[in-house]
Design a protein around this nucleic acid. Sequence first.
DNA 1: TGCGCCCATCGCAATCCAACGATAGCGCCG
DNA 2: CGGCGCTATCGTTGGATTGCGATGGGCGCA
Lengths: 113, 113
Amino acid sequence: MASLLESTCCPTSDASLDLRPIEGGAADDELAALAKALGHPARVQILRLLIRKTACVCGEIVNELPLAQSTVSQHLKVMKEAGLIRGEIDGPRICYCVEPRTLRRLRALVGGL
Amino acid sequence: MASLLESTCCPTSDASLDLRPIEGGAADDELAALAKALGHPARVQILRLLIRKTACVCGEIVNELPLAQSTVSQHLKVMKEAGLIRGEIDGPRICYCVEPRTLRRLRALVGGL
DNA sequence: TGCGCCCATCGCAATCCAACGATAGCGCCG
DNA sequence: CGGCGCTATCGTTGGATTGCGATGGGCGCA
């Protein structure tokens, strides 16, 4: 049963507002970091894959992309460090999912340009 | 008089719609390229500077940033190649300005995530 | 308990990026 | 016509990225 998965991972997105500023030095650095994390076609593809699947995927990404497993893992690490995605251990496999808050933040920062 | 400047550079933004797709392989590459061009704090700062000034600036950017002139020129080149900004020669100095179409495109791509 | 699967990490090589100083081209002003 | 200010470009250096195979740890299942 997959009901256990949803309980531990990919929690329902909290719609809390983000009060951080849209511009200024800190916002510049934040936007640059997020943009750099997106600045690779494979990472954009991975992010879209995670969004489309809604539910969490794991090594399935390796099958979808023409990249080695270690390379995919590296890209996932970059995006996780940027806060774009989240990865939680779920038994034998790892559950990756999008972090909606960061995605909203990115939209706000880009929209504020 | 500055009226001559506005005539040759920074034309009034054309509000033509962009019919290109928001997702797919080509869109992924496009978003990755635009994000990479933004993936540096100095470039975000420069872009904001150009947006705030509305009118075009040139070497004034060098005075605003703690970077050498050649470095700023390099960043401008990266953003110009990505289509984010435009640079036209205007007598002794060079007139840089934002490319509104690309900015809208970026917002659409990020918003479509 | 031991095997097998899934994934992260290490180590390495190739490539790319960022930053700088130095140099060269190009208008303008005197 | 000769200098001067403004930019782009070149060449270089150090550091970061990207990609891969190989290795190792952790968890479930037999």
